[in-house]
Amino acid sequence: MEQTDKRGYRGDFPVRDEDVQGTFKYEVADMVGGEGLMRCLKCGACSGGCPVGSVIDYRPRKVLGNVLLGLKDEVLSSDQIWLCAACFTCEERCVQQVNFTDVVTVLRNMASKEGHAAPGYVKMAEMVRKNGRVSARTGQVDKMREQLGLPPLQDPAVKQLEGIMQAAGLVEVIEANKKKEAEPE
């Protein structure tokens, strides 16, 4: 049979050697919350209980499989790690305490550093940086609070927050993602 370079043709594999970075799983397992990954049996209990999986073709087991296989670029640059709704049902049910949601957090942290964070979350982070809260304060709600006899809202310690965000690395992450956004496709 004639050989071809095109993916999906007979003789080619769904996963090619050059896509695989065998050490990726160790990188993930070394981070806070990532250690459970190495215990995964790929049993699929995570996928079975996933509320997102019940409305679209999304399977936590597949994400774990891709990480264990070493498909680093695919995992970190695609949507698949940003579809988790963080309900923790998979963590609750996992017989191996893989803690999928924590593993996803590790993967998202890695992706965010490279500028692949979900734009919605970056926007929310900028809002927090500016206001100290993820929601804006409005005069209308202030008035309603008064009507309910609630104390006036305090101003969040924004300066302290900025210091934390600078020192801990979030500001860098925000900037990496703004830069990526500005790049032409």
Binding site: A86, N109, G169
Partner: peptide, 14 residues
């Protein structure tokens, strides 16, 4: 959780 997604260390400190 959503902020932890961006950077866990920052989130824990916050």
């Amino acid at each position: 959780f959503w902020m932890q997604s961006l950077d866990l260390t920052t989130s824990i400190a916050m």
